[in-house]
Every structure is written in C-alpha cells, then in structure tokens.
Simulated scan of single mutants.
Amino acid sequence: MSYKALALQLTCQTVNTYQTRNEAEVIMLHSIERIERQIAASIGLIGRDTLLIVVPEFFLTGPPVDETVDQWREKAALEIDGRIYEALSTMVQRQQIYFSGNAYEQDPFFPELYFQTNFIIGPNGDMLLRYRRLNAMYTPTPHDVWELYLDAYGYDSLFPVAKTNIGNLACIASEDILYPEVARCLSMRGAEVLLHSTSDIGTPQLMSRNIAKQARAFENMAYVVSANSAGVVGNALPSNTTDGHSKIIDPKGIVLAEAAYGESIVANADIDLAALREFRQRPAIGNQLARQRLELYADSYAKYSVYPPNTLLSQPAERPQFLRTQQEVIKKLYS
C-alpha cells in the first residue's frame, strides 16, 4: 500500500493573553475551523490519497510562558472528554483522514498536573492512541510521578503503537526525538511511521533535532513525519522563533520533502508500506532492527540512574523545582 502523508506547517495561535478557560476554548475552536479549511484545501491540491496529516506541537494553545502549572492546567489543558477533542474528532470524520497533533491535557488520575500529549485520531473519529511526552524541562511527565503513573496505566502505555490500515503508527513529542531510546522502544513494538509534532528553532543551520530526525528514521527503519510550527503568535515571544523545516524522512534517513518557512504544505510525500516491510525483512548489513543485540546494554541501563523518577510525588510542579532537580543531577554527574 502507498499513500501520501502531510506534515502541515501551521501558525500556532496562543491563548496566553486570555484569562478564562471559556475564552481560551473559543480561540481553540476558531483554530480548528481554520485548520480544517487548510486541510480540505491541501487534500484538494495534493490528492485524495492524502490519508495522514500531522500538525505541530501545541498547535491549539502555544506553550505556557509566565503561567504556573495550576494556571495553565485550568486555562489551556484539554479535558479528555471535552468539547475541544470532540471538535477535533468531528473535523477528522469530515475529512476522512488519520490526524495527529499535540496538546496539553488534563488527567483524572493526576488532578493537580497536566501532561503534554501526542494523539492520533482515526477517520471514524475515534482516539487511537495517546502518547505522553517523556522528556521535558518544565512540563510534568509520567516519569515525574513514575510509581503512580505505572499503577494507573501500566508500562506499555508509555510507548503506544496503533495498528491501522495505513501502517503501524506511533508518536514522538517534541524533544523526545533527541532520545534514541524512545523511538527504539516504539519500533520494538512494531512502529513503522513515527509522527513527530514539534516546535523547532527557525534556522537554516543543521540543529540537533533535525539531525536526530534522520538518525531515528535510519536507526529504526521507519518513516518520520515531522511537523513544525510556522511561527507562534499572540504572546510576548518573537513569533517566528520556531518556524519552518517540517519534513518527511524515509526509512533510510533520506529527506523526501521539506518545507521552508511560513504556513506550508510542501512537506508531503508518499509512504510506501510494501517497500518498508520488504526492506525490514531483507537480511542485509543495513537491516538495523534485525541486528540489535539488546542484551549488551540492558545491564548498564539497569545499574545507572541519572534523572530521578517520582520527583513530583512530594514536591510542587513549578519551574524552580524542575530547575533544582536538574542542578542536583548535574552535581551528581560531575562531582
């Protein structure tokens, strides 16, 4: 099977200047209406075989800037069964696509926190998976409440893979692309297409995340569909700080399509599942998955801990706490 995927490079409208949840949700709903028009026009131009669309990180809200965790959760973190997800589901059903995005999300098991969540919605409007960002500087992650999170959801929830008729789809959030273990754990569970919602620095230089995208594709013999923002507007930060270079990378690490700057549909390309599966089943020096010797590394991972788990079980989820934890880790590493 072959189909087209699109990393849709969008301008992200922020909600930072709004005070109430209702005001913020009105902005989000307007963004969804705008995005649906762009999706429909994109499919009309690229072709009806455009079945997979990925949009940037925090495409509905922008990131928190001065807000506390409590303030951002109450204003901008989506309710799992709320009207924003319902509106997204309706949009996806109308457009008959697989749709992947990234949002801040409330969780009933952790009412004092929020998580940054990548999701995939199928053509019937159903939520196919939720992936919580695992590495973050100032955002709560499952690792920060490790014991309780595993009790609530189990270990396999950290690395979900959706088996669909357009391949085995998995998500990677933002800077999680820099940690090869994340993509490897997904590929070990069968992932064939890695959907990467991100907000990368707008520069022509070869930055670390762009290097990582190609490395993760090659290492795991998987497609990477990486959607970056076309600027983030409506808060105090310069709007084009994160802009450009959405791309699609094939399982050999070759960039098939890449956008420049601004809103764009240039990052679209064919996903050839049959060729991917044949490639993975071929005995060859380039078959990275079949040549993994995982036992070589298991003992080292088991013996060493760097960033500690459970840091938010007894401490507040605020920027000073995240910063203190990292300072303590650095001190331990280099003392």
Score class of each variant (00 low, 15 high):
36 E>N: 09
48 R>N: 14
41 A>D: 13
26 V>N: 15
45 L>T: 14
29 L>G: 11
69 V>D: 14
64 P>D: 00
58 F>P: 00
62 G>T: 05
33 E>R: 12
96 Q>P: 08
70 D>I: 14
44 G>K: 11
31 S>A: 15
97 I>Y: 03
33 E>G: 11
39 I>W: 01
47 G>Y: 03
69 V>C: 15
59 F>R: 03
70 D>M: 13
41 A>Q: 11
34 R>P: 06
57 E>L: 06
71 Q>S: 13
23 E>G: 00
49 D>H: 08
44 G>L: 05
47 G>W: 03
97 I>R: 00
73 R>L: 07
53 I>Y: 04
45 L>I: 11
36 E>V: 05
23 E>T: 05
74 E>W: 04
88 L>G: 10
80 I>N: 12
48 R>D: 14
71 Q>H: 04
98 Y>T: 04
33 E>M: 10
69 V>R: 11
68 T>I: 08
68 T>A: 01
32 I>M: 02
75 K>A: 07
78 L>P: 04
54 V>A: 05
74 E>Y: 06
36 E>M: 08
56 P>T: 07
30 H>W: 09
45 L>G: 00
44 G>W: 03
37 R>D: 14
67 E>Y: 02
34 R>Q: 15
70 D>Y: 13
28 M>E: 07
66 D>C: 10
94 R>W: 06
85 Y>C: 08
46 I>C: 01
83 R>D: 15
93 Q>R: 15
70 D>Q: 15
77 A>T: 06
74 E>R: 11
31 S>H: 03
46 I>V: 02
40 A>D: 12
26 V>G: 09
93 Q>H: 06
82 G>F: 08
70 D>L: 13
61 T>P: 01
85 Y>F: 15
51 L>M: 14
67 E>A: 12
63 P>M: 10
59 F>I: 12
65 V>S: 08
66 D>A: 13
24 A>Q: 04
91 M>V: 09
87 A>I: 10
37 R>M: 14
29 L>H: 13
29 L>R: 11
77 A>Y: 00
49 D>M: 05
44 G>D: 15
75 K>T: 11
56 P>S: 05
40 A>P: 01
80 I>A: 14
27 I>R: 08
77 A>P: 00
33 E>W: 05
78 L>M: 07
42 S>P: 01
66 D>E: 15
94 R>Q: 13
